[in-house]
Amino acid sequence: MAIPQQLPLGIGLNDDARFDNFYLSEHSANRFALCAVRELLNPEGERFVTLWGGPGRSHLAQALCVESADLGWQVQYLPLRAVRDYAFEPDAVHSLLAGLEHMDLVCLDDVDAIAGMSAWELGLFHLFNRLRDAGVPLLITSEENPAHLNIGLADLQSRLQWGLSCQLHALTDAEKTEALQRRAEARGLQLPDEVASFIIQRVPRDMNLLFSVLDRLDRASLQEKRKLTIPFVKQVLGH
């Protein structure tokens, strides 16, 4: 009979997305994007920002939600890649987007996920008009440059290019290593340089994947009360 592993308590350290834990290297070109997104909290600032490229789009989008909620704002975040499957028909899309102009801030993550879906394109077009009429700040993120998206509805396409568009630039391997180490540090984990390099060299270098590997390592090190060493990482990752 297998002995059940002892599960760690479900009180993970709080590394929720925040503006101040968004990784930036010293001369990072991504600082511009961070400032632009943060400006949405300024009532006198830009009302509409599009954020594309990556990694870090969802981090900034969620950080914006957290920080605006701290100000007492009512905020709606919609990860379009996930919710497009819940709302497929025009009526469902309409119903999901109804009333959002009464929020203080709306954040639409991954708009490229709905490119070519006519019900969604139309729904977002109408939502965009309502938000603009109401002066509600809007953040839209996209993997691709909004100017390249294959949006069928020209009215939506032109509106997507109306905002302040900011690109998030890819990280170099050195930056990825540092980002991973900072994330580990925020969780109280020691991730020595050689171990971080080991991970970077063996795992697909997508930041989301790297962070999920860190989650696994975090849980494993808690369960087994081990430090993060190369042999331990090898054992956990099966390399």
Binding site: G10, D16, A17, S58, Q62, C65, Q74, Y77, P79
Partner: peptide, 18 residues
Amino acid sequence: LQSELSPEQFNTWIRPLQ
């Protein structure tokens, strides 16, 4: 709920509740 749900789920469904 914040500690039980993913940030995405929390931000999408719980945070907008008033």
